[in-house]
Design a protein around this nucleic acid. Structure first.
Lengths: 191, 191, 191, 191
DNA sequence: AATGAATGAGAATTCATTCAT
DNA sequence: GATGAATGAATTCTCATTCAT
């Protein structure tokens, strides 16, 4: 079971979805195709299990890092969300990329949306706890925007433009993006 | 040839990637498989051409809408960027979705990253023209963050959570996210 | 083992030959595949044993019913043969059908031919005991024709056209077919 | 197309259903598997087409021989039915046997039942034309019994006990079986 | 005796691509 | 240029059978 998932992950990161035939997975896993089908009902099920495990891992990193700053102020919390997402993306960037770039089956992506929503829930809980400090009235929308934004920016940086992470301004600026959006007192000099 | 691309787009949006075999594309296009291979060297080339055309269309919408507010103030420009991205995603959402969710070939996604970068360039030009109004020192980073953010938020809304677009707060809040990040005078109470 | 045969029969009648894999048989029988192979050398052997048991049951019904009219006259005996065959086919019609319609292995059918021959022997014995009443000189051929005929007609009725059995003429006519063939005095006007 | 059917027939008669894999059929036919699937949607479709052709051939022989004695008397007609069935079974006995002994799919057999019914229709028409000579009141049942009987007896002889055909009594006796059943005046000396 | 995980040959089917006409 | 029949490697999945425990 574990060896099958590990073999699949390995093939996926090396050769992409194309190379991951069930026979090849079995071969790399050092088991027979028959055994593979004793543990997983289909090829898709293997990939799905792998995605689930990956998502769970990422979410766990995110959840833990966020929990660590539950009591901190807005700025610290924002910074934590950003750092958490970056860390979560570092769990297995190559595999992450393959999942998002090469998954031909509808439904695979839904598993990713799910961690998005679960992340939103965590963030919303934090925001609601400090509602009086928050400018946005709709905290549900705010959580959606924050999570989507930080995930996108993080993803783009970690996966596509790793040099962005070397920019010392990166984390501060992403944090600013969040904080200035959320913080009550602030705002552009209207008019 | 146009009929081949049109047929491919039609099959892709109707039946997804699975249904798009070269024989079926040729059939729907009303040509023979042989002819198909006279115009495109491979199946991937057809899909690539289709993606290119789609991206070009999206970028053109974005470019045009942005140009229209080239002289406007920050708030208006931000709102324009947001609206532009939403419009761009409405060019052919079904096809857009298929491209991003079902394409098992490496490299297809890179074509999408490209419009991202071209969009960034446009935005950076705008930002630089009003540098003195801008809080961020690194306008390249700012452009990256803005474009990535607005694209992600727009994409998530248009493709995955269409009900978000019905929320009257949506565009204002996304605009706020951009403007408060950019505007000089603003900032959290802290400083 | 009985439970294995019972499980096989159950699967065969419910799901047909396709569903009867050794693993499924073992599962339904409540034993392990390994145990299954301790009792039967192969899957074919299980099916063969099942056929044998089924044929034996059918033959036993036939034999018993025929014996009951051993002393009766020709007409009664003929009617008994017919009734016996009908009863024999009612032993387990579903299983009977599966055996004859879905068994892809050479040699399975031979087991059915065997009861045919054994039935012929019984009938021949009866005919010989009343040789002087019989028109046919070749009682071996007569027995073959009778058994084959009654089996075919019965089979077609029970298995394929059950409504035939509701026809009150059915048994009398089949009996007539036999008796008129056998009886000495009778014959077409011609001679 | 023809070569595929011919190859299938050849494999079926030589090695039985087991040996007839699509790859093997294609190989023997001298075409590629791909071509095979260009002509037939599935393996079953090939076998079905083969059965249909075989049944049609058999039925045609039967129909023609019966037509030839349409005007003849009962005895001659009966003899013709018998001879027709024997000839029909000689069309391709080996293939016939395979079809009836090794066809694992339900529905294949139905195609055989169909020629049975079509044969019954022909026979019934003949019987009705000479209704006044006939003893049985129910000519539908009579046709069913005759066709089923002659088919069974013929089949058993041609396929399973070829030596029966060498018996000079065989055809006369089968004819007697039919004629004595049908002919009006005759009958066992009741009581 | 019993177990059931492991085996792996083999089956049906697909589909991008070619090339003779 | 256009055609479309032919190709055949490759894919997913099954299942009778084995054998170490």
């Amino acid at each position: 079971m574990g060896s099958i998932l590990r073999a699949t992950a390995r093939i996926l990161t090396r050769d992409g979805y194309e190379g991951a035939s069930t026979n090849r997975i079995a071969e790399v896993a050092g088991v027979s195709v028959g055994s593979l089908y004793q543990y997983f009902p289909s090829k898709d099920a293997i990939v799905a299990a792998l995605i689930d495990a990956h998502c769970e891992e990422m979410f766990e990193v995110f959840r833990r890092e966020l929990a660590a700053v539950a009591g901190a102020d807005l700025e610290a919390a924002a910074r934590a969300v950003v750092a958490a997402q970056i860390e979560a993306h570092k769990v297995n960037p190559k595999l992450h990329r393959v999942f998002l770039e090469q998954l031909p089956k509808v439904g695979m992506l839904k598993r990713f949306h799910e961690i998005g929503r679960r992340s939103e829930a965590l963030v919303r809980t934090y925001l609601e706890a400090r509602r009086e400090e928050m400018r946005p009235a709709n905290l549900d929308l705010a959580a959606f925007l924050l999570v989507t934004t930080v995930e996108a920016v993080t993803h783009a940086a970690v996966i596509d433009q790793p040099e962005r992470l070397d920019d010392p301004d990166f984390i501060p600026e992403v944090t600013a993006l969040c904080v200035r959006y959320l913080a009550k007192g602030s705002g552009p000099p209207r008019g």
